[in-house]
Design a protein around this nucleic acid. Structure first.
Lengths: 194, 194
DNA sequence: AATAGATGTTAATCTAGTTTAACTTCATTT
DNA sequence: AAATGAAGTTAAACTAGATTAACATCTATT
């Protein structure tokens, strides 16, 4: 059981004592998912906040016409969940699915509520994590409004240089909010530097 | 000095003792802004998290061509700030400007850091607030991708029935990510139920 | 009451991105 | 090695929404 990435990650935000680490480790579960398996499905109640040790997930919404819209990709050292469903314990709006074989650490809702009481410092940890996630989300809204698809694609490549090779084009298009055909056209334009 | 809306708001999330309330109230500042005054300007370091007692603000980004893109409106019983700038104490990406005469309570960065230490429960309060804000922001990204401008306008009217009368059309258009001319067209279509 | 400035509307023209559909490439299974 | 299917490309026709520009309305100030 490899806890190190989680503890290293936590220690960037707060300092846990050895006893606190032990309390925390007693309440987590390691879990392995295969490629294409779902961690959360739209309509389910999201039971866990998940810290990724290895692998990659996509969080997406499927509308009535069956079109997928990807809100985020998550990789090693990041979290994945339907946070809205998790915090309210109501049915999820989003699906979370593994794009690769994924190894993660799960905090169930009840265990995390207990941990907040046993180790109040964790409130600070998660406050800081969600603050950063919120800021990134707001910036994404602005990019979607004020930039063209080509500009958004270039920024995506800059921000996630390693992810692009791991993810099919049509998912990147979905994340950018365009069709796979138009992404294909953009890439062609970039090759012929237009 | 009217603290009641703030204390009522806080008590929906956590319970403060009388002593804790006193500590908190000692560290806040009441502030009044006139219509059109700025609370934060792009490039400034955002010095405060602001709880609105009365009035209304817009948070927006101005791009190089001078176009405004509104990320959020804030009214009574809600927060306004450039959170990204506030938490990192680096220059703001956004402007926060009053659309009406606005009365608010300010938490400066240093005071809030001290409060987190004196009243650790506040970590929980702000964790929960930001969690909800993040969830709303994710849902907005999906709406922008998967709905037409007309659908987004109708949802806006549903979600903010009282705000619409208080805010000029061109700002609503900016929030929806469309031009004021196109919003005008949408409204005309809705009148003639197309 | 006249002027100026901000806000809102209408309509013509234009464009970024979608849709549809046919084709290619690549990996997987039999 | 052939066959199936998933992923990606290309190109033509189409549309949601932008741009431009002229005009209308409303308000505040002198």
């Amino acid at each position: 059981m490899n806890h190190k990435p989680l503890l290293d990650y936590i220690n960037k935000y707060i300092n846990l004592t050895v006893e606190e680490e032990a309390i925390l480790l007693a309440k987590i579960v390691h879990r392995n998912y295969l490629k294409d398996q779902y961690i959360v499905q739209q309509g389910d109640i999201c039971k866990s906040a998940n810290f990724i040790i290895s692998g990659c997930t996509k969080t997406f919404y499927t509308n009535l016409e069956g079109q997928e819209h990807i809100v985020m990709f998550s990789i090693e050292d990041w979290w994945t969940s339907d946070l809205g469903s998790f915090i309210t314990q109501k049915p999820a709006d989003f699906n979370v699915q593994c794009i690769e074989r994924t190894q993660l650490i799960q905090f169930t809702y009840d265990n995390l509520e207990e941990l907040y009481i046993e180790i109040p410092k964790l409130e600070r940890l998660f406050r800081k994590i969600v603050e950063r996630a919120f800021v990134a989300s707001q910036k994404r809204i602005i990019r979607n409004f004020s930039l063209t698809a080509k500009e958004r694609y270039l920024i995506f490549k800059e921000n996630y240089p390693k992810i692009e090779q791991r993810i099919p084009q049509y998912m990147i298009a979905s994340y950018l909010g365009i069709t796979k055909e138009f992404l294909s056209k953009i890439k062609n334009q970039l090759i012929h530097n237009q």
